[in-house]
Measured scan of single mutants.
Amino acid sequence: ETQAGIKEEIRRQEFLLNSLHRDLQGGIKDLSKEERLWEVQRILTALKRKLR
């Protein structure tokens, strides 16, 4: 995994995270989306740690 590859994956995950946040802010309670949001946040945290 290169730095560029990790950064690209971070961009993808952040896009997905923002999309999930928008969907959930629409007021629709969706447990699967909430679980996915937490999963994406965990992935992002792990990726950012790899960059250090």
Rank of each mutant, 00 (worst) to 15 (best):
E35M: 13
R49K: 14
L37D: 01
V40H: 03
G26F: 08
L31W: 06
E34W: 15
G27T: 08
R36Y: 05
L16C: 09
W38Y: 12
Q25K: 10
L17V: 05
D30V: 03
I6Y: 02
R11K: 10
F15N: 15
R22V: 08
K48D: 01
L16T: 02
E39W: 07
F15E: 14
D30R: 01
R42L: 08
D23H: 05
K50N: 06
Q13F: 15
S32P: 06
A46F: 09
I28Q: 09
L51N: 01
E34D: 04
L47E: 00
S32D: 14
E39P: 00
L17K: 04
S32R: 13
Q25F: 07
E1P: 06
Q41P: 00
E1H: 11
A4N: 09
I43V: 09
D23K: 04
D30K: 02
E35P: 03
E8N: 06
K50S: 08
L20T: 00
R12M: 07
Q25L: 10
L44F: 02
G5D: 14
F15P: 01
L51D: 02
L47W: 01
I43K: 09
N18Y: 13
R42G: 06
K33Q: 07
V40G: 01
L47P: 00
Q41N: 05
I43S: 05
H21K: 15
A4F: 10
K7H: 13
Q25H: 12
S32T: 08
L16D: 01
A4E: 13
L17G: 01
E34Y: 15
S19I: 10
K50G: 02
R12W: 03
Q13A: 13
I43D: 02
E8T: 03
N18E: 13
G5W: 15
R49G: 04
A4W: 07
R36G: 03
L20K: 00
G26E: 10
S32I: 14
L24V: 04
K7Q: 12
L51T: 01
G26V: 07
L44S: 00
K48W: 11
K33L: 14
I6P: 00
G26M: 10
R36Q: 13
A46H: 06
G27V: 05
L16I: 13
L20I: 07
N18C: 14
S32L: 13
R49N: 13
G5S: 12
E14I: 12
G5N: 09
R11V: 06
K48E: 02
L47K: 00
K7L: 15
R42H: 07
H21V: 13
K50Q: 13
H21N: 08
A4H: 10
K29T: 09
E9M: 09
I43E: 07
S19Y: 04
R12V: 07
I10Y: 01
I6K: 01
D30S: 03
E14D: 01
E8Y: 06
I6E: 01
F15Y: 09
N18P: 00
L24Q: 04
R52P: 04
R36L: 11
E39N: 04
R22M: 10
R52E: 15
E35Y: 13
E8F: 03
G26I: 11
L17T: 00
R22D: 07
I10W: 01
K29P: 09
R49I: 14
T45H: 10
K33W: 11
A46D: 14
A46R: 06
R12H: 05
E9R: 04
R49S: 11
G26P: 04
S32K: 12
L17H: 02
L51E: 02
N18Q: 15
A4T: 06
Q3G: 05
L31P: 14
E35D: 06
L47Y: 00
A46K: 07
D30F: 02
K33R: 11
S19L: 11
